[in-house]
Design a protein around this nucleic acid. Sequence first.
DNA 1: GTCTATACTTAGATAGAC
DNA 2: GTCTATCTAAGTATAGAC
Lengths: 227, 227
Amino acid sequence: MAKADNGSEPEGGAIRRRNEQAILEAAERVFARHGYRGASVQEIAEQAGLPKSNVLYYMGSKRKLYVRLLERVMERWNAMLDDISADDDPAEVLSAFIRSKMWMSRRHPEGSRLFASEIIGGAPFLQEYLSGELRNWVHSRATVFRQWAERGLMDPVDPVWLIFLIWSSTQHYADFEAQVRGITGRKALSDEDIERITEFLTRVVIKGCGVKHPADLAAGEASLTER
Amino acid sequence: MAKADNGSEPEGGAIRRRNEQAILEAAERVFARHGYRGASVQEIAEQAGLPKSNVLYYMGSKRKLYVRLLERVMERWNAMLDDISADDDPAEVLSAFIRSKMWMSRRHPEGSRLFASEIIGGAPFLQEYLSGELRNWVHSRATVFRQWAERGLMDPVDPVWLIFLIWSSTQHYADFEAQVRGITGRKALSDEDIERITEFLTRVVIKGCGVKHPADLAAGEASLTER
DNA sequence: GTCTATACTTAGATAGAC
DNA sequence: GTCTATCTAAGTATAGAC
């Protein structure tokens, strides 16, 4: 009331938003690297270029900061979990799924490691998300996969194991980046590497699950060769 | 010299061996759950049923204890990395590889999570192992995979991405156990579940990489159908 | 050989100066 | 709004009693 709201700042001052952004970025790195307990507010503050007390001033507590980060990561992921239906082409859906997971791992590796760290630690903060929202998402996709299998569009594989296969093999390049670097001998993977890995994983999944094009199916079962 | 060595204890007293064993087991759990920094000697001591000072007395320091655990995990894994040659049947080798990884994840999930935690944290203690011993192992297998591809026994996929695929998809069931439990709604996977997942992964990899039996190859390329 | 007592450091969090 | 000073608890590690 006292100060006019000229609409340029969505919430809080500009310095606040800038500082909060710096804290969130730094905290994602530190929590991803050391886990919830191993991370220290001190280190987060140093990486954000702020005094330790300011981090607590802006975020309330270490715990609140961590929860806020987890929610941010989950939001990013959920934005990717768009709907599919049994009428879609399984090859296209699986291919898009693998591709978006790969690029999410590439663009937000710290977010992926933060999530991984939380799960490895027994998911103390995400338990209800896993057994609630995420569980429902998986089972709704699983239903579609089963319908595809019934219509002969793919082998009758267990959809849940298939989803885990795609999650694990794509996230690997974010979560185990240190291992990938050590073994490939490269400082970092290039965009072309990511693209080739995406093609490899897509090929193995599509071919390995016997996914067929709806057109091939309509034309009869004569053609056993795959393009 | 003063005390006679009657040969019944390999090294140190029986109580020492028993206490060290209890500490190692407890420490593997705690380090796996919270990472190196997040783990506390206090919690390890409590889980081992010993006073905190005893843990340090037996192990020297938190750091030495951690290194000793990592070495133990690496030993277990290396025992699994037996040799293969280009003359072996690729389907059998890949199948055995996937199976042994799956059962290693099942029997030693804490070891797997300990390793995962170390890698996610940037592999501060394992960097030279990754870029040395493990890198050599991967590249020697890669050579064999390429020879199989040249002889038409499998598709010319990049062997390194294939190894990463097998590692990630099998370790997932140990490292992301909390997620698997949440989504499947089960308290724990059964031996039969593990066996079915092993079969699923084997099937997808073998079929997805176009692996053929040497016998089929010798008989010509007439048979496109896979058993 | 084993445990109690204690140094010394760093953790998260807060009150109060500016 | 921002930072300094400080509190209390917990961390690793060690010295010394038993």
